[in-house]
């Protein structure tokens, strides 16, 4: 059943890529917009899709790869369904964001060098500042901000995200 669902997704995604290319009239001037839309479809930019985009736009794959790696918004690695962004701006850093990051990663069972859980549910990133300095240390889960975190609260939050335990209130 799972695989069937995946197949459907794959086929639908590829149709979408072609629709996106058509929408931007196969014009390389729209490359960034094209990559943005493809990323929102796949949640990342798969190498072979970038090569396909280069073929369809008649530019070199190196050109597309250059643009895709220049902008931090693009990811060439698969990302999880939910993105946890741990703030490491000055205020959060001083208030121990390193511990928070460690706790998030441990609770998700991420090994060193891994930023995405193997079930592709969660990706953990650090960001320079999310503008919630008064609530330091802070983190975001997708669009929700959680402030004044400590290791216990992190555990509670991750448990909840994994479908266990109580809800933690966002800001």
């Amino acid at each position: 059943m799972e695989i069937e669902k995946e197949s459907l997704v794959l086929s639908r995604q590829f149709e979408k890529v072609n629709a996106i290319l058509r929408k931007y009239s196969h014009n390389v001037d729209n490359l960034i917009a094209i990559l943005q839309e493809i990323q929102s479809e796949y949640r990342y930019l798969p190498e072979e899709i970038l090569t396909y985009v280069a073929t369809a736009l008649q530019v070199s794959p190196a050109h597309v790869y250059g643009v895709a790696t220049f902008y931090a918004q693009f990811s060439l690695e698969p990302k999880g369904e939910h993105i946890i962004r741990v703030c490491d701006g000055t205020a959060c850093h001083v208030k121990g964001s390193a511990q928070i990051l460690k706790a998030v990663r441990e609770n998700l069972g991420l090994r060193e060098g891994e930023n995405t859980t193997s079930d592709l549910m969660f990706t953990v990133e650090t960001v320079a500042c999310i503008g919630a300095c008064a609530l330091a240390p802070a983190l975001m889960v997708d669009e929700e901000v959680y402030g004044q975190m400590d290791e216990e609260k992190v555990q509670q939050l991750v448990d909840h995200l994994l479908g266990e335990g109580e809800k933690v209130d966002a800001v």
Binding site: E47, L50, T51, A54, V59, S60, P61, A62, H63, V64, Y65, G66, T69, F70, Y71, A72, L76
Partner: peptide, 20 residues
């Protein structure tokens, strides 16, 4: 007009390399 190289990444990470 082949363009096998391009600048990739950014800032201190910038490289000149072929695609991927």
């Amino acid at each position: 007009n082949i363009g096998i190289y391009d600048f990739t990444q950014r800032g201190s990470q910038t490289k000149v390399e072929p695609a991927f």
